[in-house]
Computed example of a mutant assay.
Amino acid sequence: MSVGQQAAAALSSPDGEPAVPEMAWPEAAALVVRQVAKRYGPVTAVDGVSFVVRRGEIFGLLGPNGAGKTTLIRMLTTLTRPTAGELFVGGESVSKNPVAVKKLIGVVPQVNNLERELTGRENLVLHALLHRMPRGDRDRRVQELLDYVGLDGRADDRVQHYSGGMARRLLIARALMHRPPILFLDEPTVGLDPQTRRKIWDLIQVMNRSGVTVLLTTHYIEEADSLCHRVGIIDRGKLIALGTPRELKDRLGSFCVECFAGEGTRRVFFPARQDAKAHAGTLAGDVTVRRTNLEDVFVELTGREIRGG
Results as ranks from 00 to 15, higher is better:
G4D: 02
Q5P: 00
S12M: 06
P14W: 15
D15Y: 07
G16W: 13
V20Y: 13
P21A: 13
A24Y: 01
A28M: 05
A29Y: 11
A37T: 15
Y40H: 10
V43L: 12
A45Y: 04
A45F: 04
V49P: 01
V49T: 11
V49E: 08
S50K: 05
S50R: 03
V52L: 06
E57W: 04
F59S: 02
F59W: 05
F59H: 04
G63V: 02
N65F: 07
G66A: 04
G68S: 04
L72G: 06
L76N: 01
T77I: 07
T80R: 04
T80Q: 14
P82T: 10
L87Y: 10
V89Q: 03
V89P: 00
V94D: 06
V99M: 07
K102C: 10
I105H: 04
I105N: 03
G106V: 06
G106L: 06
P109Y: 08
P109N: 11
E117Q: 06
E117H: 06
T119K: 03
T119Y: 11
G120W: 05
E122T: 02
N123R: 12
L124E: 03
H127F: 11
L129R: 15
M133A: 06
R135T: 13
R135L: 14
D137M: 09
R138I: 09
R138E: 12
D139H: 01
R140C: 02
R140T: 10
V142I: 07
D147G: 04
Y148G: 00
G150I: 10
L151A: 03
R154E: 10
Y162A: 06
S163N: 02
R169W: 01
R169I: 01
R169A: 00
I172G: 00
I172D: 04
I172L: 08
A173H: 03
L176Y: 03
L176Q: 03
H178N: 09
D186P: 00
P188A: 12
D193C: 08
P194S: 13
Q195G: 00
T196E: 13
R197A: 15
K199Y: 05
L203F: 11
R209M: 08
S210Y: 01
G211C: 10
G211I: 11
V212D: 02
T213F: 08
L216T: 09
Y220N: 07
E222L: 05
A224E: 08
D225G: 02
D225E: 15
L227K: 01
H229Y: 14
H229C: 06
H229K: 07
H229F: 07
V231E: 10
R236E: 15
R236M: 12
K238D: 02
K238M: 10
K238A: 12
I240D: 09
P245Y: 14
P245G: 14
E247D: 14
E247I: 13
E247A: 14
L248C: 12
K249R: 15
D250F: 12
D250A: 12
S254F: 09
F255Y: 15
V257P: 02
C259N: 15
G262N: 11
G262S: 12
E263M: 04
V268I: 13
A276D: 07
A278S: 13
T282N: 10
T282H: 12
A284E: 15
G285N: 10
V287Y: 08
V287F: 09
R290P: 00
E295H: 08
D296Y: 09
F298V: 11
V299P: 00
E300L: 08
L301T: 09
R304N: 06
E305G: 01
E305W: 08
I306T: 08
I306Y: 07
